[in-house]
Nucleic acid binder design. Sequence first.
RNA 1: GUGGGUGUAGCUCAGCUGGUAGAGCGCCGCCUUGUGGUGGCGGAUGUCGCGGGUUCAAAACCCGUCACUCACCCCA
Length: 447
Amino acid sequence: MKQQTGPAKVRPISGFPEWLPSERIVEQHFLDVIRETFELHGYASIRTRAVEPIERLTSLGEDTDKEIYAVSRLAGGSDDSREPKLGLHFDLTVPFARYVLENSGKLTFPFRRYQIQPVWRGERPQEGRYREFLQCDIDIVDVGELAPHYEAELPLVIADAFSKLPIGPFRIQVNNRKIPEGFYLGIGLTDVTSVLRIVDKLDKIGPANVSELLQAAGATPEQAQKCLALAEISAPDESFVERVNALGVEHETLTEGLAELAAVIRVGAEQAPGLMVADLKVARGLDYYTGTVYETQLIGHESYGSICSGGRYDALASDGRTTYPGVGISIGLSRLLAKIMPSLSASRSTPSCVLVSLADETDRPQGMTVAAALRRRGIPCEVAPVAAKFGKQIKFAERRGIPFVWFPASADQNNDSVKDIRSGDQTVADASSWAPPAADLRPRVVT
RNA sequence: GUGGGUGUAGCUCAGCUGGUAGAGCGCCGCCUUGUGGUGGCGGAUGUCGCGGGUUCAAAACCCGUCACUCACCCCA
């Protein structure tokens, strides 16, 4: 047996990102804003377990199962074989659909909920693509029928949240699955999924390559041309309907999709001009979507992909007798932050606003009393780790970005005083009444 | 899963055709005998990813392996 000389070297695990304290402050700010906004719009919070029976996760599409992380006891023996095999959820919509079925008798419909949790996908990581990441999800489900106006509501909620965050300009692209589906069927292409998948690459590989791939998949040059013509349609208003009609393809599903998308875009144009764009190439990977689909890109970072996606699903939650159609959209918070974190920072790496200094270790009780008085009034603070030269204690605060150092009264100073170490200003202060400027109370996100 | 790139100090990296490790930043101490930031002086830190091979000699060359990373696939 080989002798272990020391602990194994610690290493990051690819695809499982972790933030430093100052970055986590930024993330928490985003979480606070998103949560407040969701609640402002009346969404109730739920949390679901991390695992679902693998069967439930895989019943939705062929592509998903290879991404699922299985969960089992390390020492699981034969007595475990009766339990369902478990997997970590890869999104929040599937667990939510299960939760609705399980609690349908206790929920009131239409039910609107938000859910902020990690999800797991066993993919090869890349920039902005992780194996564990945070999603912030809102969904609305109803019994039997779901009013179409909800499909316009969700992007407006997202826009409200994003407008309060330092992420720059963004655009929500909306499409309706029925449009490409009806269109492809209308021109005689029956493998809708494959065609969608190819057309989805348009931005990345260009029209010529898309055409080539389509023809390799069995389309005629004319069919490929039509697909491209449809995919290239994009409009901030209902004008896309005429442009589609001008292509001269007729199909019942297409007509339905056009009407539905037009309704969503109309509301968007009224309530939030410039936010939504009808973009007929948007496809969305997950195949449980049946109508409206959303993607969101940061303007100027289009090739980064979508940072917030979702859509309408009519058949995801069904117990055989009753169906609960829903519509949802999810912020890929980890992906969003990965892109913009380099341009952001926290004003300090700790919540502490004040460091209470100690002239001598015997003064610690006095320092703790000062700290308690500050905390009673909501001022985050901590007492110096050791009594040291004041210069060292100031440096301790400075390295963490703590803006104030408190000096308790001493033999040569009758009063407590507090120093703003950024300006150097020091004033006499009383722990029962002094307060920092509001802007300094909590760490801020700065751009 | 497939293909490319990279692994040297806490961080960013240098290290030529082999001669057993360096810089900047950061960190610590002192100048500064209880109020920091600038400046000066001094200091600590590496299984050179891991295992094997070639060689008198390997961070360097060869083989393997692992990790990270980029692209494909797919997606937030």
